[in-house]
Design a protein around this nucleic acid. Structure first.
Lengths: 216, 216
DNA sequence: GCCGCATCTGGACAGTGCCAAGATGATGGC
DNA sequence: GCCATCATCTTGGCACTGTCCAGATGCGGC
């Protein structure tokens, strides 16, 4: 419970750093960002079921109704949390694949990074890929940010030399593979005996191998 | 609200059919199945957010605590509903692909059937593929039933002639494609302009084309 | 016919999302 | 410097949820 104090008003980075406080501080400081941070923290430590508007408000040290000044409803908070998740995901994928130019190797790195993210941030990933947010179109920035990781894969594919398969369709296929594999892995639905999933890198490499002719 | 009456105790098929009632009727008749049916109905007509234990109990005409005689908690009810969903899905897929022997044509039919199911039963499909059920391992029969559609695809692939790619890996790839495509479609994330998604059959066929060499 | 036990009821508790009315305090115009 | 404005936040409350408990109910085996 100590950890919750991180987000208390008056404490925490955003509120203690003088300049920051002057710029953003109102009653709380920067409640919106703090609520998102608190939400992420609850998600990581206690799981989706414990992530409520009231709990985030509590962790931030404000009243239960305070979040409504920044989010229309619970879904809007979830969307904001998911968005920072997509931001982090895209960042991590880009980092993990820096310098790798060969199309197939790059795709492999990107997918492995995607899988690693999902494993390291399962609850967050499930929020991002699940259906807790009814229609994404209500949150345009979410859609934009979510598109970044897709764009990374798409870009890696346009870079390949042979173009016998139209890139958009190959992208959709690879993307589905990436997403589908991840789901199967984090849900533990792949029999380790037949797939050798204890060595993820080898497994992914072999599965991508199905596309081998297209990834020249 | 009229429709809710379908599930009232003493009415409805399971309770009025004499033999059925004699065999199963207790206080209610066959509460377990009725609750599942009611849950499915609520899911279809009012959406996931309205699907609560209490609502299903209400629709069935029993007290709020009655479901606990048949389900340990809400998740258990969801699991049972999801399971009948998987049952229906596998049935539909098998029907839609009857008689089609050619590997590629059969795969195509199976995937189209999968997509059609997801479109026709969106809320149910999201329950089946989402993360509302925390870990599937708690519901062994769910896992079994969910595996049926996977098995259909797997079987279709072992039937192909060329075996230059190991079947399990190709199955995982095709399965991911199937699942991923469906998600992209029902979430409306595919730009119709670039993909021509208004003609689903053509779109799916073209996307599967990425695997063409492996589907001989 | 009676007893055991699965089944179902009524009531209760803590927790939730959301809302309305009011307090609070920063900010721009004077 | 002061004041009105308005976003921000609080308090209290409503309806709903999942879950539990003590007790009523009634079917099946004896």
């Amino acid at each position: 419970m100590m950890a919750g104090l991180i987000f208390l008003k008056g404490s925490g980075m955003t509120a203690t750093v003088e300049g920051f406080q002057k710029k953003f501080s109102y009653h709380h400081g920067d409640l919106r960002e703090c609520l998102i941070a608190a939400g992420l923290h609850i998600l990581e430590t206690e799981g989706t079921s414990k992530l409520s508007l009231r709990a985030t408000a509590r962790a931030t040290g404000v009243s239960q109704a305070a979040p409504y000044s920044h989010f229309a409803d619970k879904e809007a908070l979830l969307a904001a949390i998911a968005e920072t998740g997509f931001q982090r995901l895209a960042l991590q994928m880009a980092e993990d694949a820096t310098g790798v130019r060969d199309a197939r190797a790059r795709i492999e790195k990107l997918i492995l990074s995607y899988i690693r993210f999902a494993r390291d941030n399962t609850a967050l990933f499930q929020l991002m890929s699940g259906h807790d947010i009814a229609d994404i179109k209500k949150y345009p920035t979410l859609g934009m940010t979510a598109g970044k990781s897709y764009a990374l894969i798409s870009a890696a594919l346009t870079a390949r030399t042979s173009q016998d398969v139209e890139t958009p369709f190959l992208t959709v296929a690879i993307w589905s593979l990436c997403h589908g594999l991840t789901g199967l892995i984090i849900d533990g639905r792949l029999n380790p005996a037949t797939f050798g999933t204890e060595d993820i890198e080898a497994f992914v490499s072999k599965t991508i191998g199905v596309f081998a002719p297209q990834l020249v």
